[in-house]
Design a protein around this nucleic acid. Structure first.
Lengths: 230, 230
DNA sequence: TGACATTAGTTTCAACACGCGACTAATTGA
DNA sequence: TCAATTAGTCGCGTGTTGAAACTAATGTCA
């Protein structure tokens, strides 16, 4: 039996493993993804930031360093989105890739050297494995939106409730009703108001809030079958 | 820069990668996990079924074969739960492990050779990486309970609604209310009744149902912040 | 055989959450 | 001073939820 487990590395077939990161930031009403220029002669001009995995190195830490290097700053949040093998081509011909999604707040300055932001809906051609990762990353963000503070990491430390709502709409891909959104937010004790207000040209100034989760409301709700159809 | 992306495998440091699978089945009111006996001289007597990754091989397919071999049958459902590196010891000293969780219906016959079921709350000592994977696997099952037919894959083709409810309680780790559970189930059009009834000793016989999802109810609901506390 | 325990399945109701439109509030600019 | 614009709230109709009480069908045992 070729694959019988063994207590040693005997039988192991070393694999070239890459860590590939989808770094996201909001840009207006759309998400942007950070790409780096590929080496001359590559089949695509752009690719996700990635690096070869180092055997003795914790992949999550390493991936964070790769993202930080491409972004010029440490991302505010990051998580794995899955491993992909040779079914789709990788730009560096890695046999196996571990995908990550990272988010960062609204960007102030341009990214370093050969990095550049692209709107997620208008990406240049990517190697198939990278294209698949972008899709997985977007799904992962949407899925974790209500179990991890993803939306807050896409915003600066203080923000208006309209800012927050726009991030939710961005990630969910649909509009949300203002009153319902604020009612739910208040019930969850996730934000607290600051003393500051922001006036954005016309209209009433908006109060600034900060992310300050208070307590776990033991709101265990009923089983939800809705997403299971089909 | 050590990790600069490259369009070739130059610079790649080949890694010994393992595929490790947490195979789960319900047993009474608890989940059981399939373990295999480790080779003589290993630090732990038991381990999760695992195999070395093969570079040219799709990891998901390969993991399914590993699970099938340990179980003696093909699992009914399987998904990745994440990659872990050297921060925790692997029984085969793999530098990197890709974890999977698989589920199968109530087991009729014993598993082959050196495989054995253990209740998830009373597992023997496992290598730290395997122990962490079991925890991740349980979390992953709970998370996907409402987006994948996990619960139905833990049951035979026909089942009573009480069976189904007990699987949900098993995976959620809490009791659910009978009437609410059935109401939600009916609204989601996930099961259909058969003509058969099962009499289990005392009490009124229960009707048998089968998994037969009908339509997608486009039930887009409000934003849910409840799980974000703390 | 008939009361009772046991398990399956339904009904009912109060409380709450949600979608939604309409409302008030504070500011800029004409 | 008034319209336009954006922020934020209120109230109502409706649907969902948790909970308990109810009916239904079977086996057990005196």
């Amino acid at each position: 039996m070729r694959d019988r487990p063994s207590p040693t590395t005997r039988g192991a077939q070393p694999t070239a493993v890459s860590l590939d990161i989808v770094v996201c930031a909001p840009h207006g009403r759309s998400l942007s993804v950070l790409l780096v220029r590929a080496a001359a002669g590559a089949r695509e001009l752009w690719m996700l930031p990635w690096a070869w995995s180092v055997p003795g190195d914790a992949p999550d830490d390493h991936a964070m360093r790769v993202a930080s290097e491409a972004l010029g700053a440490k991302p505010a949040w990051m998580t794995q989105v899955g491993a992909i093998g040779n079914s789709r081509r990788h730009p560096g011909t890695a046999a196996l890739s571990i995908g990550y999604v990272a988010v960062t707040a609204v960007r102030a300055k341009a990214p370093p050297g050969n990095s550049q932001w692209f709107p997620i809906a208008g990406l240049p051609a990517l190697a198939p494995r990278h294209a698949a990762l972008v899709t997985s990353a977007q799904l992962a963000l949407r899925e974790r939106l209500d179990t991890a503070p993803v939306a807050f990491r896409l915003l600066p430390a203080t923000f208006t409730l309209t800012d927050l709502q726009e991030v939710y709409e961005l990630l969910l891909g649909r509009r949300v009703h203002k009153a319902s959104f604020r009612r739910s937010l208040q019930a969850a004790w996730l934000v607290e108001p600051t003393d500051e207000w922001r006036s954005e040209g016309r209209g009433r100034p908006a109060q600034l809030f900060r992310y300050a989760p208070r307590k776990r409301r033991g709101g265990r709700r009923g089983v939800r079958f809705e997403l299971l159809g089909g």
